[in-house]
Design a protein around this nucleic acid. Structure first.
Lengths: 233, 233
DNA sequence: ACCGTACTGCGAACAGCGTGCGCAGTAAAC
DNA sequence: GTTTACTGCGCACGCTGTTCGCAGTACGGT
């Protein structure tokens, strides 16, 4: 029957009894489960139980599990507020990047979500607006603005993804290899086919500071911002 | 019982009957299904059926579905060969980026995979080696090499992700909003709270060339590479 | 040549999943 | 007060990943 997106449907219908729960409440419950037990623990049954309601009652609020995910994403985006603009695009974009990263680190499931479609809830819109505002200057065509914003947000998301993967695996991409199996690592190094990879693996065994990811992110972010600067007037 | 990673386990055991299938065969079957019908269609039963074998026989080859995914990823990475180095890091990195993007566009499910852990099959290793080789120069410390390689690969993956999302949704992130519901778009624009977003939405309605994504990627990639150049000697 | 052993293939079964359907109850509109 | 459009939700269906145990098979050691 092709319902309109959830952001357009009124929360309370014109007729009938008042719904027992709000979207806020539902999103909060789902986020709580995901934060505590991971994305896999977020099932319709589980969220319904969390709300003290019947399983299929959830479908009165949400068109399916995908829409539940939409609610979760938008809810998570309200976890930090977009930074207030300073007028310096570089400072503003860096602030957006750091704030976005913080949100994703606080909600690791965010970055694992299928993301088969854009989520356009009010909180997400606020982030987009702030990002576009930081990038946008007179004389820059819309395509370039979209490209620059996408480059930044895409980088943040990708970096958070890799960071979380490494955190959960307990080591660097290369270090993981070593840890996973000394034998495999030796085989890779010993084969002589991967000289540069071998160098990374060996140096990755060195213990790293606790703030390693923070510094790595800051450094890479500078690279990206420098790159974006080249595309501006 | 904590088995070693699949890349270390011999394909053929020392004792017992010869396995009826190879990993290649299994990976190929799974990839075929994913390419044709999407990631959701890839179930243990489906892949087993595709191979003409019993469902649970698959577990003789693979520790669980995650490992099946690992096989799929590594198999997809063999779909294009890493470019041969020219000695010019910028050219080489651009080649890696374009080749990786091509692979991801050919196998859209790649970028939707959970990616809860690094995949370190032989083909993936070859890509990593090539990427590190392009970035690596004497005098650059390993952390910087890892950072630059991660920045590039992360960007490519993120861009492909967004591109695929937009392709499937049939429009730009902003355009999607408009298409999804004229009413919502008008509400957003009319609210006056999102001036820059509104500008993007309006200009996104303009029809774009078929190669829009290609040009967008090329442009953004230049930005990133320029940024990386700043971190080198 | 033969036995023990370690494997392979796989049917049955289980718990859990997303979700469509239909019915009883309720609040607002007329 | 009647009609109407909603809400809550138990039931049921088909599907999922995965465990278990059993029959059959090929190799290693003797």
């Amino acid at each position: 029957m092709d319902r309109p997106p959830i952001w357009l449907r009124p929360e309370r219908a014109a007729r009938g009894p008042r719904p027992a729960h709000s979207r806020e409440e539902i999103a909060a419950a789902a986020v709580r489960v995901a934060d505590a037990e991971g994305l896999a623990a977020v099932s319709m049954r589980r969220v319904a139980t969390e709300l003290g309601t019947g399983t299929t009652s959830l479908y009165r609020y949400v068109d399916g599990k995908d829409e539940l995910f939409d609610l979760m994403v938008d809810r998570a985006m309200a976890d930090g507020r977009p930074p207030v603009p300073t007028g310096d695009w570089r400072v503003d974009l860096a602030a957006v990047a750091h704030a976005q990263r913080a949100i994703m680190l606080r909600h690791p499931w965010l970055v694992r979500l299928p993301a088969t479609r854009p989520v356009l809830g009010p909180n997400m819109l606020a982030w987009l607006e702030t990002t576009y505002a930081a990038v946008d200057v007179p004389g820059l065509d819309a395509d370039e603005v979209l490209a620059q914003a996408a480059t930044l947000l895409t980088f943040v998301r990708g970096h958070a993804m890799e960071e979380l993967t490494e955190r959960e695996a307990g080591s660097t991409m290369a270090g993981w290899l070593t840890k996973q199996s000394q034998q495999y690592a030796e085989q890779v190094i010993g084969s002589g086919d991967y000289p540069h990879l071998s160098r990374m693996m060996i140096e990755a065994e060195t213990p790293h500071a606790a703030d390693r990811f923070d510094r790595l992110f800051a450094r890479s972010l500078e690279h990206v911002l420098t790159g974006l600067a080249a595309g501006r007037g």
